[in-house]
């Protein structure tokens, strides 16, 4: 069985549409992958959805898509075959309704690709199909052909939101109402974007330094600032924050402190799990208690920032984030006329 790469080939799009890569997406069906943690940061989904609609792209959500289950695989609660079966069911449902799935979370992005990776192993693939057969039997047949089969050469392609936004950056900038007014921005890519090899064609792409976020910040009128812990983990570490909180929060503390040391106005990231870790008020309180330092640097997801720069109503893009330190201050600075 041959497994084609699920990752959208950005180089190919750039070659075919050098002047306007957005054209490639026109007329295609796009689907937003629902990351569980978007619940706490609805601007991550809504901000992005608003942008795609403004760019006149056909965008939807797949109601049959479940959690990616990466967190359970990483904590040894499900096997590789079970993880791949859950992933195949999600891919199968999305493959029916869309051409491209866009992912706002590094964890979900990693899961979608990892589930397919595991299927390259014959034993895992056989076990996965056996599981899907058993589901099919219990479900009393299938609603559409191939519903419970491992997908062979699906048309569906996967792209991370950051890669998409960078690709269409010229159109993106034209769609924005505000700019960053010279704010200093520390960027955080997140481990499962920065260190991922699954989505790369060759080792050079894997090892090259990642600068897309910095380049976007400059385009938005901000100043990217380098800091010592730029490439370090947020501290979540596949639930280390729940299991070994003291050690994990030390990593979170180091990251936040390092960005404050270079006087960044906020930290920008493309992942809601990193955002959850770096912004949760309870974690900031624990940091103050354990490391005797109150850190107030605001943290923003790239999609939320796009929403703010687009002039999205405060209620829609950062409504649930009022407890995040100084976020409203940043909102006011960006949106002042």
């Amino acid at each position: 069985m041959h497994f084609n790469n699920l990752v959208l080939d950005l180089q190919e799009i750039k070659k075919k549409y050098p002047e306007n890569p957005l054209e490639f997406f026109k007329g295609k069906k796009l689907c937003l992958f629902k990351a569980c943690l978007e619940k706490y940061f609805p601007g991550v989904r809504w901000g992005f959805q608003d942008l795609l609609e403004e760019l006149q792209l056909d965008v939807s959500i797949c109601k049959d898509q479940s959690c990616c289950s990466g967190t359970f695989f990483q904590r040894n609660l499900i096997t590789r075959a079970q993880f791949s079966a859950i992933n195949e069911r999600n891919l199968s449902e999305m493959n029916r309704q869309a051409d491209i799935v866009l992912v706002s979370c590094n964890g979900c992005y990693n899961s979608l690709l990892r589930g397919r990776d595991f299927l390259k192993n014959t034993e895992v693939r056989n076990k996965t199909q056996k599981i899907l057969n058993s589901v099919k039997k219990k479900a009393d047949g299938e609603k559409y052909p191939g519903m419970y089969d491992i997908l062979e050469n699906p048309k569906l392609k996967v792209v991370h939101d950051l890669d998409f936004l960078y690709l269409i950056r010229d159109d993106l900038v034209n769609a924005l109402k505000f700019d960053l007014k010279g704010l200093k921005v520390a960027v955080h890519y997140g481990c499962h974007y920065l260190n991922l090899s699954r989505d790369k064609k060759n080792v050079e792409d894997f090892l090259e330094s990642k600068t897309k976020l910095e380049e976007l910040v400059e385009l938005f009128g901000g100043v990217p600032v380098d800091y010592k812990e730029r490439e370090s983990c947020c501290g979540w570490g596949a639930s280390q924050l729940l299991i070994n909180p003291h050690e994990a929060l030390k990593i979170t503390y180091n990251k936040l402190k390092s960005a404050e040391n270079v006087e960044a106005d906020f930290i920008l990231m493309p992942c809601p799990t990193c955002l959850y870790t770096l912004s949760k008020p309870e974690y900031r309180e624990k940091i103050e208690e354990w490391f005797n330092e109150k850190l107030e640097i605001p943290t923003i997801h790239l999609n939320e920032l796009i929403a703010i720069l687009q002039g999205c109503e405060e209620d829609r893009c950062i409504t649930l984030r009022r407890k995040t330190p100084r976020l409203e201050e940043i909102f006011e600075i960006i949106t002042q006329q």
Partner: peptide
């Protein structure tokens, strides 16, 4: 204690 961050792979 591993964070499964995949840095080691890189």
């Amino acid at each position: 204690y591993c964070y499964l961050c995949e840095r080691c792979k890189r």
